[in-house]
Lab assay of single mutants.
Amino acid sequence: NITNLCPFDEVFNATRFASVYAWNRKRISNCVADYSVLYNFAPFFAFKCYGVSPTKLNDLCFTNVYADSFVIRGNEVSQIAPGQTGNIADYNYKLPDDFTGCVIAWNSNKLDSKVGGNYNYLYRLFRKSNLKPFERDISTEIYQAGNKPCNGVAGFNCYFPLRSYGFRPTYGVGHQPYRVVVLSFELLHAPATVCGPKKST
């Protein structure tokens, strides 16, 4: 009989979020998941679920829940969905086509923008091939755009693969920082350890 609540607040209220190319993952297990707390949290810009209804989450049990978190621009949030393409979905964070879970995003301009620009948040701009679902690539190898080998030196046709967002408070909404948490639900042939409040007695 599990009684402790799942530590969703640790994920959602973290002081610093990860850059999207180096997205953070927390495994959540052996706890009671009260999703209504999240669902009623006012400032969400997006709360979209795939393969599961957000209002039914509290009735369900899962083997594991993974909480992935990172920061992207407002106009990139739409790429955090199954079957998407674009710089983020291709080179930074890719969801599987059969994704079961929820994508939760909110504007973090007050936290993550600075006058003069916040350059701490990076994304991958160049990559030889697209990421596989949930693949994480933190390499900083110089990207070779031409035929000539770069030998690890940036220059003509040789690019550092990461780019900084440089968030400023005055940017338009599409270019403002958004914090994103992706909850993915794993249902294995194993005992369920993460259940909603109704199922955990």
Rank of each mutant, 00 (worst) to 15 (best):
N1E: 12
N1H: 11
I2T: 14
T3H: 11
T3L: 09
T3C: 09
N4Y: 09
C6K: 05
C6P: 05
C6F: 06
C6I: 05
P7A: 12
E10V: 09
N13S: 07
N13V: 05
A14S: 10
A14W: 05
T15E: 13
R16S: 14
A18L: 05
A18M: 07
S19T: 05
S19F: 02
V20C: 05
V20K: 01
Y21L: 05
A22Y: 09
A22Q: 11
W23C: 01
W23L: 01
W23Q: 01
W23V: 02
N24A: 11
N24I: 07
R25V: 02
R25E: 01
K26I: 12
K26M: 12
K26C: 08
I28T: 04
V32F: 10
V32I: 14
V32N: 09
A33I: 15
Y35Q: 08
Y35P: 08
Y35K: 09
S36T: 13
V37I: 14
V37G: 11
L38G: 04
L38D: 02
Y39E: 15
Y39L: 14
N40Q: 14
N40K: 15
N40I: 06
A42G: 15
A42V: 13
P43T: 08
P43Q: 09
F44L: 12
F44N: 15
F44C: 06
F44V: 11
F45G: 15
F45W: 15
A46M: 14
F47Q: 07
F47W: 15
K48D: 10
C49Y: 05
C49R: 03
Y50C: 01
Y50R: 04
V52H: 07
S53R: 10
S53Q: 14
S53P: 09
P54I: 15
T55L: 13
T55P: 09
K56T: 12
K56H: 14
K56P: 06
K56N: 13
L57M: 10
L57D: 06
D59F: 08
C61W: 07
T63V: 11
T63R: 13
V65R: 07
V65P: 02
Y66T: 11
Y66H: 08
Y66R: 06
A67G: 03
D68P: 02
D68L: 03
S69F: 05
S69G: 03
F70D: 00
V71G: 01
V71C: 06
V71N: 02
I72Y: 01
R73T: 10
R73Q: 15
R73V: 03
R73M: 15
G74R: 05
G74K: 06
N75R: 14
E76V: 05
V77L: 15
V77K: 06
V77N: 03
Q79K: 08
Q79S: 05
I80R: 02
I80G: 01
P82Q: 03
G83R: 11
Q84S: 14
Q84P: 03
T85M: 08
T85E: 08
G86W: 03
G86N: 03
N87A: 15
I88E: 00
I88A: 04
I88Q: 02
I88T: 05
A89I: 05
A89E: 00
A89P: 07
A89N: 04
D90G: 09
D90L: 09
D90C: 08
Y91D: 02
N92E: 00
N92S: 04
Y93G: 00
Y93V: 02
Y93M: 02
P96N: 08
D97T: 12
D97A: 13
F99N: 00
T100I: 14
T100W: 08
T100N: 10
T100P: 01
G101P: 00
C102P: 02
V103M: 04
I104M: 12
A105Y: 10
A105L: 05
A105R: 06
W106M: 10
W106D: 00
S108Y: 02
S108Q: 02
N109K: 09
N109G: 06
N109D: 05
K110T: 10
K110E: 10
D112H: 02
D112E: 03
S113D: 00
K114E: 11
K114L: 10
V115E: 11
V115K: 12
G116R: 08
G116C: 04
G116E: 13
G116D: 11
G117M: 03
G117D: 02
G117C: 02
G117V: 03
N118V: 04
N118M: 06
N118P: 02
Y119M: 09
Y119R: 07
Y119F: 06
N120H: 13
Y121F: 11
L122P: 00
L122V: 12
R124Y: 01
R124A: 01
R124C: 01
R124L: 00
L125I: 07
F126N: 05
F126I: 04
S129A: 12
S129W: 09
N130V: 15
K132D: 10
K132L: 12
K132F: 09
P133S: 07
E135L: 05
E135T: 08
E135H: 09
R136S: 07
R136L: 07
D137C: 04
D137G: 02
I138D: 12
I138H: 10
I138Q: 12
I138K: 11
S139D: 13
S139E: 10
S139W: 05
T140D: 14
E141Y: 09
E141F: 09
E141V: 10
E141H: 12
I142Y: 07
Y143L: 06
Y143I: 04
Q144C: 04
Q144A: 10
Q144E: 11
Q144K: 08
A145L: 04
G146D: 05
G146E: 02
K148Q: 13
K148V: 14
P149C: 08
P149Q: 11
C150W: 02
C150P: 01
N151L: 12
N151W: 10
N151Q: 12
N151I: 09
N151M: 11
G152E: 11
V153M: 15
A154L: 07
G155N: 06
G155D: 06
N157R: 03
C158H: 02
C158P: 02
C158N: 02
C158W: 03
C158K: 03
Y159M: 01
F160Q: 13
F160E: 15
P161A: 07
L162A: 02
L162K: 03
R163F: 15
S164Q: 07
Y165C: 00
G166Y: 04
F167E: 00
R168A: 05
P169C: 03
P169I: 04
T170D: 01
T170N: 04
T170K: 06
Y171V: 02
Y171C: 00
G174W: 09
H175K: 00
H175Y: 15
Q176A: 04
Q176E: 01
R179L: 00
V181I: 08
V181N: 02
V181A: 05
V181T: 04
V182T: 04
E186M: 08
E186N: 14
L187V: 12
L188Q: 15
H189V: 11
H189F: 10
P191V: 10
A192Q: 12
T193V: 11
C195Q: 12
C195Y: 11
C195G: 11
G196V: 11
G196S: 12
G196F: 11
P197W: 15
P197T: 15
P197N: 15
P197R: 15
P197F: 15
K198R: 13
S200L: 14
T201H: 14
T201V: 15
